[in-house]
Write a protein that binds this DNA or RNA. Structure first.
Lengths: 388, 388
DNA sequence: TTGTAGGCGTTATCAA
DNA sequence: TTGATAACGCCTACAA
């Protein structure tokens, strides 16, 4: 007889299913045969569950009753096994297994005020920009027995604010956030609830918050230097929308920096803002090619846009890098498989993710939150960039 | 004076911070000036919080006290606003805002036995295979006020079993699962806890479970037909590991089907099993090219493997499709941006995701779980497949 | 329309 | 080493 059969039987008898099944399973475990005894132990929860909507999961109490110990002992078995005698522990674990018991997370969080769950809010899951970093983040947290909850904000500060509330309400002990741009309310909320957080994917010496990342502006300036060194003078930038995205702004500033340093007029830079996606990158490139004074180099805010641009170039028969050079940013896998391969900025995805995890774990354990870590991003020169 | 200053003050006074700040903010709200009054309403929870580790978040009770109503009324305000008078509601919402109150999810779940959270366990987040489908799933659920929790199992049934337990413990009301392959215990657990679930990304008429997907075997057979029709006879398959992955097995069977239908010997099919990744695809292709009797067509279990194969072909100077044809499966974005573009199977990602969401919502609301939906997957012929 | 009170499943603090 | 028992924050009959 299997568990679902128990449940059925119990329903028919109008009994709490766990009452019966516990008892019955106990008989089996003890090798006392399979007869359903009449003298069921009808304790205080022996009555049919009040709401009785669906047979609810077994609880600590069920396990306790089945193993003839108190709920406290069962709880200890699961959380501090060392405090329980060998024999009892064995009993209890047997019951746990037999019942398929899984602790109720909500109740646990309520009582323990700690969930061992951290949250991560990334702007998008659509493309792979954050995938590798997030993966590293999760892995590192896993090593510390911490679960990761992920949400995405679609690059909207308002939506992110909601997500923050949602994750905190769900008991997130700490949060990973991307970039510094968010609503005042978001920061106030975090402060008020005393939730440790770290800002990743960017390092900005002017921001005092705990953070780990690289200097987007410097990196983009450095890439632009390479481009200018190839003789390009008419350059364009396809950027993500800059509102609510400090990384995008900084990258744009980086281009300006390099232009000024080389005696070019930043105002001459053609900038197209469009959300990160392959098709948007393609469209933007197409528009640029329709101009009378075509740029000879198109810098893209990330690899996804660049891949789109490259595809469009192929479609239009524009030779890359012969006629136009194209660069990306991020160095995700796609950068190497398009042809020609993308010149791009290699971002330390995994280090940022893992580093952020370590920072947060430290903060949760009481470390001061003043840490700011700058990582390096370096240029990957590949075939998509050539001389003018 | 801001919130954190309140907190500081309260700490110094050894008071529950919320007590003070509630009162103070209330004064502000009422326009009664900023003086801290001495006659603070020190009700039953007026004493400093026992543990006092960190100033905990405001609770329903705090809001209730601040707006001078009962907790029940506040709760109703948030959940069934219609049952509360306009005036009271306004009062309460003001307090909620002032306090930055966010309901404690655990407590809510505990009391309401319903979380409005569904879980999704996908094999991997590493590549984009499931991204679009998942996105649609989330969007559809969002429309029903349901939050999505995502976990990934790394294609391991054992890990998936853990994830299932974790999500259920976290209060997932229903689950989205990929494929039919999982441990007996997983199914038993779902049954025991009466968690509605739907199996997606595959449709198999022999499986009675609620499911939505397409026939992987038929789709792959159809693709193979196209390949054979181009005159290919020496073909190879680069597949994901088949253990624990029914989709991979079915795709392989599909190739066999088409071969038999065309008088070829399935045993002659060279199969390389390797986890989905670009680099693995590249390695597999390299191995195939080292054979004495090179295949003229390399079918790949998905687009990621195919993209890797294609990259390696370019690197090796193997002309595609001149010397070797390559095909993928899934039709994710990458398929169109590689060159030559991939011939592949277009999978109804978004329909599967949205459909699964609708099914689950229905099941949670009491619909019978017997539904099985078959969607169509169709072949996208692109440049990577040519005549032999 | 509002308030009172019991209970949800755990953990943690005391005693025993 | 164990067992009572009081929180934990919220929802929801049931009463008023």
């Amino acid at each position: 007889m299997n568990v679902s059969a128990y449940i059925d039987l119990c329903k028919r008898l109008h009994l709490a299913w766990c009452e019966i099944s516990c008892y019955w399973l106990k008989l089996e475990l003890l090798g006392e045969g399979h007869a359903l005894r009449a003298d069921l132990d009808m304790g205080k929860s022996g009555q049919p569950r009040a709401s009785g909507k669906r047979p609810s999961s077994p609880t600590l109490e069920d396990v306790a009753r089945m193993s003839r110990v108190s709920t406290a002992t069962v709880s200890r078995c699961l959380n501090n096994p060392s405090q329980v005698s060998e024999a009892t522990r064995e009993q209890v674990l047997k019951a746990v297994n037999a019942l398929g018991y899984a602790p109720n997370f909500g109740a646990r969080a309520l009582a323990a005020k700690r969930t061992n769950t951290f949250g991560a809010i990334i702007p998008t899951m659509d493309n792979a920009i954050f995938a590798r970093g997030l993966q590293a983040f999760q892995e590192e947290l896993g090593r510390h027995g911490v679960t990761t909850l992920v949400a995405s904000s679609s690059y909207s500060p308002e939506l992110e604010e909601e997500q923050i509330r949602a994750l905190v309400a769900r008991g997130a002990d700490a949060l990973l956030l991307i970039g510094h741009d968010r609503t005042e309310k978001s920061y106030a909320f975090l402060e008020q609830h005393q939730i440790p957080y770290v800002v990743a994917w960017t390092f900005n010496k002017d921001q005092a918050r705990p953070s780990i990342g690289f200097d987007n502006r410097k990196a983009m300036a450095s890439l632009t230097e390479h481009v200018l060194r190839q003789g390009h003078r008419r350059i364009a930038l396809v950027s993500a929308p800059k509102s609510g995205n400090d990384r995008a702004r900084e990258r744009c500033d980086g281009v300006h920096d390099a232009m000024m340093a080389n005696g070019l007029e930043p105002a001459d830079l053609v900038v197209i803002e469009t959300p990160y996606s392959i098709s948007n990158g393609a469209k933007a490139f197409e528009r640029l090619m329709e101009q009378t004074n075509r740029p000879t180099a198109v810098l893209c805010g990330n690899d996804v846009l660049a891949a789109g641009a490259l595809t469009m170039a192929n479609k239009l028969g524009v030779d890359v890098p012969g006629e136009v050079s194209i660069t990306g940013f991020d160095d995700i896998e796609i950068a190497e498989i398009v042809s020609p391969a993308l010149t791009t900025v290699h971002v330390p995805h995994r280090n940022m993710g893992a580093g952020a995890a370590k920072l947060l774990v430290g903060m949760r354990n009481g470390a001061s939150g003043a840490t700011r870590i700058e990582l390096q991003a370096d240029i990957k020169l590949r075939a998509s960039l050539g001389p003018v």
